[in-house]
Design a protein around this nucleic acid. Structure first.
Length: 301
DNA sequence: CGTCTATCCTGTGGGC
DNA sequence: TGCCCACAGGATAGAC
């Protein structure tokens, strides 16, 4: 499932191929992809326009065309982008055709595949619409220099939700998904169930670092290909071979050798070394209440 | 507002 | 061998 490093990998490979070229044709075979616009409406807005820049915001691939026309593309779980595949892939949802370029650059074909059909492409007209779209959906980029321990502290303050749930919420931090949340929490030696608001200052710093290190390692390895993710040329990323805990239930922790366990946190499969990442203890006040036999918030009303 | 749950979707794999 | 069903999960609407 494409997260920040996977989308960034696609962006880096695709940008030099598409920037400066004209989108001659876009065929949308699945009307879910362009909703609420009909495929024809979206195609009419994009066809004939030159791609000025291919960017990324969180897990979104952002196509910026001339005339301030933008397409915010999301790959969700199983979306893929393939450049000039030799054989026809399955589950093709969208086909793009780029016009011939100068200096003998031939017409090119680009396919968007998506087994589960969760992927989307949203049309945004004007810089204001683009900004508003992302302001409502994604928080600060974790690889931005403004993402500091202070920022993280302010963001987590007062929250009782498990830290992993907060990491997965795109409105807080952009681009972190299930893989990189597990990897970052392990690096920071934090249990995914720890209430987000109860981290200490040193833990804010180590979590910030854990996120940055996990995401950068993912980008360096050109993403993780555990299920469907492929590069635009169909090749696989390598980060799945560097997972420290994710999808490693039953294997020894790379730090202490304790068996890694799988649990469900925030509705997601979650992998933890419960020796390195200590389970949160109940607060002093709640232990006191429990001792007296009074109902707790969790068990009572 | 904060948090939790159901929903979308389809290939995979465990159980029988 | 083959059928059935639970399961996987990113974002979001809706419930509380």
């Amino acid at each position: 499932m494409p997260e920040l490093p996977e989308v960034e990998t696609i962006r880096r490979q695709l940008a030099p191929l598409v920037e400066g070229r004209r989108l001659e044709r876009i065929e949308i075979f699945d009307e879910r992809w362009s909703r609420p616009l009909a495929p024809g409406e979206l195609a009419a807005a994009l066809e004939g326009r030159r791609v000025e820049r291919l960017g990324r915001r969180g897990k979104y691939l952002v196509w910026s065309f001339e005339d301030d026309v933008h397409l915010a593309q999301h790959l969700r779980m199983t979306g893929g982008v393939l450049w000039e595949p030799e054989s026809e892939p399955t589950h093709v949802r969208v086909r793009l055709q780029l016009a011939r370029g100068g200096r003998g650059v031939a017409r090119s074909r680009l396919l968007i595949t998506d087994v589960r059909r969760f992927g989307t492409g949203e049309l945004l007209l004007g810089a204001d619409a683009l900004e508003a779209f992302f302001a409502a959906r994604v928080g600060l980029e974790p690889l931005d220099e403004r993402f500091t321990a202070q920022h993280l502290r302010a963001l987590l303050r007062g929250r009782r939700a498990p830290i992993k749930a907060v990491l997965l919420d795109q409105r807080h931090i952009a681009g972190v998904g299930n893989i990189y949340a597990d990897e970052a929490l392990f690096r920071a030696r934090l249990h995914p169930l720890r209430p987000a608001g109860r981290l200490t200052r040193p833990q804010h710093a180590s979590l910030r670092l854990g996120l940055i290190e996990a995401l950068c390692a993912g980008v360096d390895a050109k993403g993780a290909s555990i299920d469907d993710f492929r590069h635009v040329d169909g090749l696989r990323g390598a980060f799945q071979d560097q997972f420290l805990v994710h999808r490693r239930a039953g294997e020894p922790c790379p730090r202490c050798g304790t068996e890694i366990v799988r649990m469900v946190v925030a509705g997601r499969g979650t992998y933890v070394c419960e020796h390195c990442q200590r389970r949160p203890r109940r607060s002093r006040a709640r232990r006191r209440r429990a001792r007296r036999g009074a109902p707790t918030r969790a068990s009572g009303g």
